[in-house]
Nucleic acid binder design. Structure first.
Lengths: 336, 336
DNA sequence: CTGAAAGCGCTTACAG
DNA sequence: CTGAAAGCGCTTACAG
């Protein structure tokens, strides 16, 4: 049943040629006669021959692999990894995914180990690292940290990230909303900070009232608690939640207090989760093109490998999806 | 800034010893004097020396790595991979994650390539493969397909998988429900088939009425469509949905038709998604211990690597979480 | 206690 | 057109 692993030597023996000839034939290099070529190919086929990549890597000093490192999983990273993987393959690399966790120091150390292990030609990190990490890696093994998920406050990331918050507040104000609440993400996250700043700036610029910024942990409970702690006269108001799960918590809180959504409480999410369109009311949210984010990040690594400049000034990855959870405020004075 | 990659030769030169001595010291083998040991260790530290794993693998014929192969991502695989990774590390292996897609033939071929590449000591597949794949791999590279997600109908997997369906129907019947509907998953999935069989058998055994089994694609739309196509006199009924997303679609469908949940329509999900507790009503569902599933699968691979028997007869991985979406049927005759 | 040497399976200049 | 040989960086018997 089981096949023993064949080496190029085995193939050479079966084909009656030198081992180096096998190597030439399979690499498509050298000048080998068509007959020999065919004999070798058949022998290789018959033995299910496949080059030992460890040996090849040692000889060529090229592994053809890059590592993609992730920390705590961002909400459904599959699409992002698919994009990165496709970009890697397009450039002639295979991508492995590795998970690291612990403090930023631990993660940085672990990434350096990967870079020094000789297993990878480059490392793309989707988790923040110490700035020094990119410099401590071996000369020929670039380490690139994806800006998309960086903990630092890059100007580009900041603006791109927060622009939907501005659009949300402006649109809701145009619908007639004057009172807002923001259930923010934890302030360790650059994206959470950027959105909070954008929220406060926009509310002030438009002369609106903010009932506050509540810091949450991206959980449904955070949204629920935020609503339950509001005064009875809070509605009508508009809530900018840090993600869809928080927004669902907000909706439940509203239901518990007898406030209607979207009339008494309009709410926006972030992430475009699968359930969004099927909630009642369906949820207004932000869709992020994760596959494109992955592709862009990998292209940065490939540019570093080729010692080229990385592409710049690309369009934002986010799109707003308007649904039923955002509407003009209900006229509460007209109520029974 | 950048450090060139150091080899054991570099360390030996710096420490003033033979290259083989470096190897002995770092492996903790051989009998090396404490002084030499210390000199070598310091030199290695100073140069950030780290053994080239490709070279080590070639010499030892051991890579210390196993591959975990996934197809289309199961709903949030992170916990499962974390469990598998922990089990691998506990057994002295590093785990890489690779994604494969395409037909079952393509995937099987790709997995065999991995097994023959010399990069991995074993392969654990979380995606179904052709039965022959496990036999065509090299003698010393076991390929194990995780039963948890197998497409084939294993007796064990079948029973374990479907038991919550039995419990759902029994419990709902005890609450007074007599009319049921099942929105099933696609019949290519073993789990979908097992649940459908369990549903039909239980409904019949208890003398209940089934309004049918609708085959869906795990989407919210499937749940929505199933409800919209029911006759006006369908309620009160209980819907067994194939997952939480489908269940949310069912809830939206009920809202559109003016049917209350859980009074007119009780509904159960599957997966214990994050949003479940915050929906209105909150969703009764099935929680699967994904980390344990990953651990068990990896233990099977490790058992194969050690040529030991795999553990058997383990308790099920599922727990039912009862919430608000399941309740006694409303008395519709008493309605306005 | 330490070092010289073989060899893992490959690729690639080089000699025939 | 083909083959013998070196060497990638390691580990490990073996000789001193």
């Amino acid at each position: 049943m089981h096949a023993p692993r064949a080496t190029s030597r085995d193939v050479a023996r079966l084909a009656g040629v030198a081992q180096s000839t096998v190597s030439y034939v399979l690499a498509g290099k050298g000048s080998i006669s068509p007959e020999t070529r065919e004999r070798v190919r058949q022998a290789a086929e018959q033995l299910h021959y496949q080059p030992n990549l460890a040996a090849r890597a040692m000889r060529t000093r090229r592994t053809g692999r890059v590592a993609a490192v992730m920390g705590l999983p961002t909400y459904n990273p599959a699409a992002m990894l698919a994009g990165a993987s496709a970009a890697a393959q397009g450039a002639g690399y295979l991508m492995d995914v590795l998970h690291v966790d612990g403090s930023i120091e631990t993660r940085s150390e672990r990434v350096l180990e990967l870079a020094r292990s000789g297993q990878f030609e480059g490392v793309l990190s989707f988790t923040p690292l110490q700035p020094a990490a990119e410099d401590l890696a071996p000369t020929d093994v670039p380490v690139v940290v994806s800006e998309t998920f960086d903990d630092e406050m890059h100007a580009a990331g900041e603006l791109v990230d927060a622009s939907p918050v501005v659009a949300f507040v402006e649109h809701l104000a145009a619908l007639g909303h004057a009172r807002f609440l923001h259930v923010a993400g934890p302030s360790q996250y650059a994206s959470a900070v950027a959105r909070r700043i954008a929220y406060l700036a926009t509310v002030e610029r438009l002369g609106l009232t903010s009932l506050g910024v509540v810091e949450g942990d991206w959980s449904g409970q955070a949204g629920l608690d935020a609503i339950l702690s509001l005064p009875e006269d809070a509605p009508p108001l508009a809530v900018i939640a840090s993600n869809d799960l928080v927004a669902v918590g907000v909706m439940r809180g509203a239901a518990q207090r007898g406030w209607s959504v979207p009339g008494d409480v309009s709410v926006t999410g972030w992430d475009n989760a699968d359930v969004g369109p099927y909630l009642t009311p369906s949820l207004t949210t932000v869709d992020t093109d994760r596959a494109e984010a992955g592709r862009r990040a990998m292209r940065q690594l490939v540019a570093a490998l080729r010692q080229e400049a990385a592409p710049h000034g690309l369009p934002p990855l986010t799109t707003i999806v308007w649904r039923e959870s955002t509407a003009p405020p209900a006229d509460r004075t007209a109520r029974p």
